[in-house]
Design a binder for these strands. Structure first.
Lengths: 194, 194
DNA sequence: GTCTATAGCGCGATAGAC
DNA sequence: GTCTATCGCGCTATAGAC
């Protein structure tokens, strides 16, 4: 392994992401990352000069990863209903991660958006737009195939689905956990079904 | 006015609530409150010895206030559909507050729940339960009157509505604001309509 | 690239005068 | 009940040796 292959960088990003998804960006510190990775705080600053810089890198990485998974789902041969279920499963997989229940990275950062920089705000906007656009495509596809009974504007329904998933993954961590998340998303599928 | 009528206490609570609804509990500090109220940090500690104590007091106050409004709606002579709309309007009123867009206090604290104490966790649970129970009652009432087309479990639908509203109020602050919030909630009403 | 050491600041919280 | 002053700590960030 070369010394510049980015393994340490990746470990730092992984630890930071885990912490933010559980505690929030304002609840995560370089010391927490230091403890998790087994590296000194100064070394983290070598890779990510400022906390804003670290968060922005994280947001980009998560967005690319998430959109790639979403695009794979969209381009698969599954039915629109199955595609939506697989999209929902992306959120559920996040929630049921090994280290305890985590929310979506963008859900956490979105909640704290007023205390972050303009760069982060732009990235959050981009994530929301990307999700809503792709969901709109998916919903329209399902309406054509008569598997979704879409009353009203598909864009509004897409925004509803996205808000619901982001909200549910935040809410259920306090009480019902994965079990309640599934109850809510099953109900969503029922409401959308033709 | 007596010196123990709690005016200062109320001012502190109001400022703290505003800050948490915009920045989150971890993004709010005693110094911020001090600046907002025009009182020294030490004086805040006189009224609320610890930050946890302040947050717990806030959560209780907000919960009582919100449930009172919700109960008033439930006990009114409005139709179930109108009642649900008025409930949604409680969230919209929070969002369009004068000092910039605010989320629900419990939405913000819920996102940061893993970095708060067990007392706060219990209060968050209580708020979620209270909302879901009342919403369930409202939805069943509407189903009887055939104004809601409830497929599936009313409890699951109630949890869906609550998660959606908490999620939407967090999400729309990044981009669409009140306009998008209204678009989403109108779509919800369409989906639930018989 | 990682380390030790530390600067500089803001935090929550306390002591004690008034 | 509010103030000034301060403690002790954790934070982000930097300097410089290795």
């Amino acid at each position: 392994m070369s010394e510049s292959d980015g393994v340490t960088k990746t470990k730092i990003l992984d630890a930071a992401q885990d912490l933010i998804q559980r505690l929030g960006a304002n609840g995560m510190s370089y010391q927490d990352i230091s403890d998790a990775v087994g590296i000194r705080k100064a070394s983290i600053h070598h890779h990510f000069p400022t906390k804003e810089n670290l968060i922005e890198t994280l947001l980009d990485r998560y967005c690319e990863y998430f959109f790639r998974l979403f695009d794979n789902i969209l381009q698969s041969t599954a039915s629109p209903k199955e595609k939506l279920q697989k999209y929902i499963d992306l959120f559920e997989a996040t929630l049921r991660s090994e280290k305890g229940e985590k929310a979506c990275l963008y859900g956490m950062v979105g909640a704290e958006i007023a205390s972050l920089g303009l760069e982060s705000l732009a990235k959050v906007k981009h994530f929301h737009e990307g999700n809503e656009e792709r969901l709109t495509t998916l919903l329209i596809e399902g309406r054509k195939g008569r598997v979704f009974n879409l009353k009203g504007d598909p864009k509004a329904t897409a925004a509803l689905v996205f808000s619901l998933l982001e909200g549910a993954i935040l809410i259920v961590r306090a009480k019902g956990g994965v079990r309640q998340f599934r109850q809510i998303t099953e109900q969503l599928m029922i409401l959308l079904a033709a």
